Amino acid sequence: MAADLGDLSAFVAVAQAGGFRDGARATGVSASGLSEAVRRLEARLGVRLLHRTTRSVAPTEAGARLLERLTPALGEVAAALDVVNGFRDRPAGTLRLNVPVSAARLVLPGIVPAFLAAYPDIRLDVVAEDSFVDVLAAGCDAGIRYDERLEQDMIAVPIGPREQRFATAASPAYLARRGRPGHPRDLLGHACIRGRFASGAMTAWEFERDGESVRVDPSGPLVVRVGGATDLAVDAAVAGVGLVTLFEDWLRPHLDSGALEPVLEPWWPRFPGPFLYYPGRRHLPAPLRAFVDFVGRHRPAAKG
């Protein structure tokens, strides 16, 4: 009753992703190919492993038991095969990263081109999203997160700027029309462009100065989904719709060009930069080890 390793891997990918399409995205194998592999495995074992509906796929009791045992076993197989990478002149393989959209825009551009030039046999697969996911269950090797969202059983190393700020800005036309806020509470009388996370929670507007912290909940004519629609918020601010609060580095080109003007700058809050995080395995896949080492060698100096 020996099962094909590829069929077992296909089952794990589909079960972890919760569907054939998402499993296909995680593995690079077509959804039809995964479906056929799972059917072969079920026929060989003589038991149904997945409940299939038009909307979702979930393991049966037998499938859940198999998944529980297979996941670490396949991880060991992958680690064993990756040992061969140590005998190559250059590490090879695919490195999958799960990162917030802000990191894809503000952190990775300063790292990825040089990394890929240094390791031409590594393929980097980046998933950018702002919903909190288990990177391993999502089929990724590592992720980028900020300190408040790090999982405790993961190793975290600094990546990107070690300190960042949230900036508030508006167009010159808006400020000429509505006036310039002098205190964060003045924002309650202004049009503010808000962001909403996938969870439905609104982004916080927080400020601090000389030990005083102020949190306000302003309103405005536009709410955008954090991540995918953030550029719309910036474009709307440039067009004079209202004030926007965002990573300073995201707004910096518009601040430098004069399309936006800083507002309440003495109140802009600072926060620690992001971390690359990954499971604390004794043996890391060669592409991930290369990336961790590269990030360590090219870590930016802390600002004084």
Results as ranks from 00 to 15, higher is better:
residue 2 A to W: 12
residue 16 Q to H: 12
residue 19 G to H: 02
residue 20 F to D: 01
residue 20 F to P: 01
residue 22 D to C: 06
residue 24 A to G: 06
residue 27 T to K: 02
residue 34 L to M: 10
residue 35 S to L: 00
residue 40 R to I: 00
residue 42 E to S: 07
residue 42 E to C: 04
residue 43 A to S: 14
residue 43 A to M: 14
residue 45 L to I: 03
residue 45 L to N: 06
residue 46 G to C: 05
residue 51 H to D: 07
residue 51 H to K: 10
residue 54 T to C: 05
residue 64 A to L: 15
residue 65 R to S: 12
residue 67 L to Y: 07
residue 70 L to P: 02
residue 70 L to K: 04
residue 71 T to M: 07
residue 74 L to W: 12
residue 75 G to K: 01
residue 77 V to W: 03
residue 81 L to E: 10
residue 81 L to A: 11
residue 82 D to R: 03
residue 86 G to K: 09
residue 86 G to E: 11
residue 87 F to K: 15
residue 88 R to C: 13
residue 89 D to T: 15
residue 90 R to G: 09
residue 93 G to C: 13
residue 94 T to H: 13
residue 100 P to N: 06
residue 101 V to G: 01
residue 101 V to A: 04
residue 102 S to K: 01
residue 103 A to H: 00
residue 114 A to V: 07
residue 117 A to P: 00
residue 118 A to V: 15
residue 119 Y to P: 01
residue 125 D to Y: 13
residue 126 V to N: 05
residue 126 V to D: 09
residue 127 V to Y: 08
residue 128 A to E: 04
residue 133 V to Q: 03
residue 135 V to W: 06
residue 136 L to V: 14
residue 137 A to W: 13
residue 143 G to D: 05
residue 143 G to W: 03
residue 143 G to E: 09
residue 145 R to M: 12
residue 146 Y to T: 06
residue 155 I to W: 11
residue 157 V to M: 11
residue 159 I to H: 04
residue 162 R to V: 02
residue 163 E to Y: 14
residue 166 F to I: 08
residue 167 A to D: 03
residue 169 A to P: 08
residue 169 A to C: 14
residue 169 A to Y: 05
residue 170 A to W: 00
residue 170 A to V: 00
residue 171 S to K: 01
residue 172 P to F: 04
residue 176 A to K: 15
residue 176 A to V: 13
residue 177 R to M: 09
residue 177 R to G: 08
residue 177 R to D: 11
residue 185 R to P: 08
residue 189 G to V: 01
residue 192 C to F: 13
residue 193 I to S: 09
residue 194 R to D: 05
residue 197 F to C: 01
residue 201 A to L: 02
residue 202 M to L: 09
residue 203 T to M: 10
residue 205 W to H: 08
residue 208 E to G: 09
residue 210 D to I: 09
residue 211 G to E: 05
residue 211 G to P: 00
residue 211 G to N: 07
residue 219 S to E: 14
residue 225 R to Q: 00
residue 226 V to I: 13
residue 230 T to P: 07
residue 238 V to W: 04
residue 241 V to A: 11
residue 244 V to G: 08
residue 246 L to S: 04
residue 251 L to W: 04
residue 252 R to H: 11
residue 253 P to M: 00
residue 254 H to R: 11
residue 254 H to W: 07
residue 259 A to L: 07
residue 260 L to T: 03
residue 269 P to K: 13
residue 270 R to A: 12
residue 270 R to S: 12
residue 271 F to L: 03
residue 272 P to V: 11
residue 274 P to M: 13
residue 274 P to V: 08
residue 275 F to L: 08
residue 278 Y to N: 02
residue 280 G to C: 14
residue 281 R to Y: 08
residue 285 P to E: 14
residue 286 A to K: 02
residue 288 L to P: 00
residue 290 A to N: 09
residue 298 H to W: 10
residue 299 R to M: 12
residue 301 A to N: 10
residue 302 A to H: 14
residue 303 K to V: 10
residue 304 G to M: 11
